[in-house]
Design a protein around this nucleic acid. Sequence first.
DNA 1: CTGAAAGCGCTTACAG
DNA 2: CTGAAAGCGCTTACAG
Lengths: 356, 356
Amino acid sequence: MASIKDVAAKAGVSVATVSRVLNDHPSVSPAARTRVLAAVDVLGYRRNAVARSLRTDQTHTLGLVISDVLNPYFTELARSVEEEARALGYSVIFGNADERPELQDHHIRNLLDRRIDGLLVSPTDGGSPLMLDAARAGTPMVFVDRWIPGVDVPVVQADGRAAVRDLVAHLHGLGHRRLAIIAGPAATTTGRERVEAFRAAIAEYGLTLPDDYIGQGDFQAESGRRATERFLDLPEPPEVVFAADNLMALGALDAIRARGMRVPEDIALAAFDDIPWFVHTDPPITAVAQPTGELGRAAVRALVARIEGRTPKSVTLPARLVVRRSCGEPSPEPSPAPATEPSSARRSSPAQRSKP
Amino acid sequence: MASIKDVAAKAGVSVATVSRVLNDHPSVSPAARTRVLAAVDVLGYRRNAVARSLRTDQTHTLGLVISDVLNPYFTELARSVEEEARALGYSVIFGNADERPELQDHHIRNLLDRRIDGLLVSPTDGGSPLMLDAARAGTPMVFVDRWIPGVDVPVVQADGRAAVRDLVAHLHGLGHRRLAIIAGPAATTTGRERVEAFRAAIAEYGLTLPDDYIGQGDFQAESGRRATERFLDLPEPPEVVFAADNLMALGALDAIRARGMRVPEDIALAAFDDIPWFVHTDPPITAVAQPTGELGRAAVRALVARIEGRTPKSVTLPARLVVRRSCGEPSPEPSPAPATEPSSARRSSPAQRSKP
DNA sequence: CTGAAAGCGCTTACAG
DNA sequence: CTGAAAGCGCTTACAG
């Protein structure tokens, strides 16, 4: 591969001049610039980003450590992060922690060794010494979705409390009283917050959330299945299961089907996180939707601000309720009233918002 | 951040010795090793991978350029690629081409500039000059899933022909005669191959695939929707729509629902690529499943072999048919015969394989 | 406007 | 077993 030296030789100038041309430095004569550009072209020269990074101490690379790529929520988050990063001139290296703290540490270590300019993390746990050290050492860092209390790092997240309150109002309005939740790991903020939001909303109706109605999940499908089976084995099973993420909702659906039961006739189901497939499950699933793309973009903007020496604020964006058919909502089809409307437009639009 | 110099100073040795300890070079005295390790520990030293890469001309990084991360098939592929790469001591930088050739080129350029050791590509198109040049220039490279004819690069892919033949046999057995396909872009191998496999299988039954029954899609949901609408507008619409990937199947479902029609009563639907959600759509979708994880792992192994100077062979793994309920398959529930079996176990198992 | 030179943080023959 | 030194491919004051 041609190096800057080859270009300099071919253009008859010094490597310094070549470098200036490459970096759009103003003090280069038009003649020199032309010759350098011609040489670059002939040689098919491409600047070595590794050498440049070593010299400038900047890699123009962001690290993103997420908990589980296979979770469509995180896939979409990763996608928007990459898009915004690209728009700002950064590449991103992903690390998939697979909800395993050791793997998360592996990726953080790897990313740090590669001297990424900044780190975006959705922590799998309460924070390893490694991550805490990195934050303290001043590595530009931003938390997305999940965060670690007591660490001075900006957080970009969705606030699901209003939407969860909307959901509970919706469920209560449909006549449901026995509400259960499949929670995420207590070591994560989202694991705790969603349960608390649910409990608080339920309390507003004078209801309680008994311990039996709190299933302990880990944000993966299998744990949703197990928690649901336990609910169904209860002497008095819940009327509604609220899964704290989309994968656990998938597991819950599996478990319910495996018993030969039906949603929502035998038991209702709602989920935190909305994904395109929820429109097409049987039945379509009522869910709390996060502004995922906007979260990813805001996180990148905050991180780049930190890298550039500014001190970005945390960002909190509201989630919203999307009502579909999994909680016993009245079927829109046989309804004779709104005859002008195409049959499926109302119930499956992701833009729909409940107003309790 | 502490550098190797700091470690050397603290340990009272030369940087050469520190480097040897770090690289497990045999000729280091136990005493020196101990002092170096202690210094590393005290300083919290971490080797600068950028500097190391510049010196050794190896980044231990693989580039993976895929067509669309949001497609669950590619998400899973990416995940298995990262896992196998990690097992072999490599990191991977992802580039999402979003089915756009210019974006694909952007990523390839970026990856090449970063001096990745090897490139894994699932080409979005017939191959840009950039990609062709890279292949010719000897960049270690492997194609996964999609490939480019006439380029001397190993290919790791699934062969769907047998499974598509199984599918057509299945459809024919259910009484369907008017079969349509939503194809992927003709610029991709998978876009062409799946149509050809379908056409060939249909021919075995003395049937044909009229042009009207070939919808032109781009592997994205929206194109599946449009193609399906066109099918439904035909004077004689097809009895079955076979979508050449899972996202177009999603779009097809949307379009069918939007007309107030039902699957499979009004029209049957099958898809290439199987994903966990297909078990829970309404109805569960009959699909051709690729051995996705194994493809990703095999691709990484082939690429690393190439990087290490060996000359790996192409790998082709068989896909298989997974029968569910979207093609008018008889419902298993009311069947009195297999009373011993739990109600949903049979029809939704991803391991199930049709034997026509 | 231009070039010689130092230096980023490593690794690795070479000599001892 | 160990260290001095060269060099990977760049960038950037510094001097002219």
